[in-house]
């Protein structure tokens, strides 16, 4: 096996709610290698954010992990105590979020929040921490970093707040950065800046990145390999190039088709009919079958296994009888 930093194996998780038991994650599997950018793509509610939170050990009270493990550097995150987790969080694995301004505490200055994070994982005094904070802000190309340190989060733009979050996330040179839709709330010109920054930092620090997004465009720009998630399972997995150039899973095909492109102009967009299933009572077999135009009898009964359909390209679909992985 190659050098793997994170390995999610057979992760199946339910959530208890007032309406009933939500069967959210259904046997999720993927691996992230050292020094790569791995994209987890899917539409809202597909379970990609839940997965990322589980990797951070942020398990909600109502979650029931039915099976599976999450190995970070060979150790199962799900079995760690809160204090073990706190030694990893922000130090070995860091995370940035979709809503950067909301991720910063509104009533403390940027300076104080950065110092708290730096002093938490590093044995330094306050002045050194402040110095480090300034250096970090320069590292993330923050314009006017001295002023930003003295600002409150609401005085920052979305792009600037995300740079602060990134600066805090890389303060202890983590091995893995989880980026949960970090550019979704940003304008397209600012998104481009942040994507470029993440790429640069990833190369400079040699860290791995788990990039979670719904945007196939962002994935195509940034990620080396991806996993496409649908309704709590990874349905396509492998190199970004192969999956997007030559999609084999009907869901991936549908997604690629649904993106409005110049060549579709004047023609109806080939959309995926229906909507995402309800987790209270998800479809049996392949969870995509009610929306799949190629659905067969077997799809309604049995969940398909991951099979290899090409070089570095795997899908979970009964249409493909390739060799099992």
């Amino acid at each position: 096996m190659e050098d793997v930093i994170l390995s999610v194996e057979n992760l199946t998780v339910d959530f208890y709610t007032y309406e009933g038991v939500l069967h959210v994650l259904d046997d999720v599997n993927f691996k992230i290698k050292r020094g790569e950018i791995f994209g987890l793509v899917g539409e809202s509610g597909c379970g990609k954010s839940v997965t990322s939170r589980l990797i951070m050990g942020l398990v909600a009270n109502n979650a029931n992990i039915r099976s599976g493990r999450i190995l970070f550097n060979g150790k199962d995150v799900l079995k760690m105590s809160e204090s073990e987790l706190n030694r990893i969080r922000g130090k070995e694995i860091s995370m940035i979020f979709q809503n950067p301004i909301g991720s910063l505490n509104p009533v403390f200055k940027v300076k104080d929040q950065m110092i708290n994070v730096i002093m938490n994982h590093q044995e330094v005094d306050k002045d050194t921490a402040l110095d480090k904070a300034l250096k970090l802000l320069k590292l993330v190309n923050m314009p006017d970093p001295e002023r930003v340190l003295e600002s409150y989060p609401f005085e920052l733009s979305g792009g600037m707040a995300q740079r602060v979050m990134i600066a805090m996330a890389i303060s202890s040179k983590p091995k893995l950065l989880i980026a949960d839709e970090p550019t979704t709330a940003l304008d397209v010109t600012i998104q481009a800046q942040i994507l470029k920054l993440i790429k640069e930092l990833q190369e400079k620090l040699g860290m791995s990145v788990l990039f979670i997004t719904h945007d196939l465009g962002v994935v195509a720009q940034l990620c080396d390999r991806i996993g496409v998630m649908y309704a709590g399972s990874v349905v396509a997995y492998g190199s970004t190039y192969n999956i997007l150039k030559n999609p084999k899973h009907p869901y991936t095909m549908g997604l690629m088709g649904a993106i409005p492109r110049p060549e579709h102009k004047g023609k109806p967009l080939p959309s995926i009919k229906g909507s995402v299933p309800n987790y209270l009572d998800p479809p049996k077999g392949c969870r995509f079958h009610p929306r799949c135009q190629y659905a067969m009898e077997i799809c309604k009964k049995e969940k398909p296994r991951m099979v290899k359909v090409g070089e570095n390209h795997y899908v979970a679909c009964w249409l493909h009888g390739g060799e099992e992985d």
Partner: peptide
């Protein structure tokens, strides 16, 4: 032009082609 160059296209052949525009609004 800058807007166009900032859009990430879902085409893996265009990987790394986005050109960020300097500064903020």
């Amino acid at each position: 032009k800058a807007l166009m160059e900032s859009i990430p296209y879902p085409d893996p052949d265009k990987k790394g082609t986005i050109k960020p525009l300097y500064g903020t609004i």
